[in-house]
């Protein structure tokens, strides 16, 4: 486990850069993580991140499909917001564990 500083706050992360404690997360921290991923966070991004965090807090499995049906973005817009590997990138920026979903 290592520590990284985002927005002036020290955060524990695992080897792959995912937060080990999601409670430390703030939108400011998210902005700093997003910059690392090459993403400039907008309100739209934050809305998706909040959805992901709420769903995870409820213990529900996260899938690309569920985000596409969130009413915030569809799957295509999700890919556009977090290009490349959207579910992984969004999870890291949302300060939650690496997703374990296959769909």
């Amino acid at each position: 486990m290592t520590q990284r500083t985002y927005a002036g706050i020290a955060v524990d992360v695992n080897d792959e850069g995912y937060f080990t404690q999601s409670s430390v997360w703030t939108p400011e921290i998210a902005k700093a993580v997003a910059t690392e991923e090459g993403i400039d966070l907008t309100d739209r991004h934050i809305a998706v991140l909040n959805f992901i965090r709420e769903k995870t807090a409820k213990g529900e499995a996260l899938s690309l499909r569920s985000i596409g049906k969130s009413g915030i973005v569809d799957a295509k817009q999700f890919y556009e917001l977090f290009p490349g590997a959207p579910l992984k990138k969004a999870s890291r920026i949302a300060g939650i564990a690496k997703p374990s979903s296959c769909v």
């Binding site: 499995a61 690309l64 499909r65 596409g68 799957a75 999700f78 959207p86 979903s101």
Partner: peptide
């Protein structure tokens, strides 16, 4: 139930990602 979509929706997801 496992969030595996029907074929047409699955194709939507695949093509949405390029």
């Amino acid at each position: 139930k496992l969030d595996i979509p029907p074929v047409d929706e699955f194709l939507d997801l695949i093509t949405a990602g390029g």
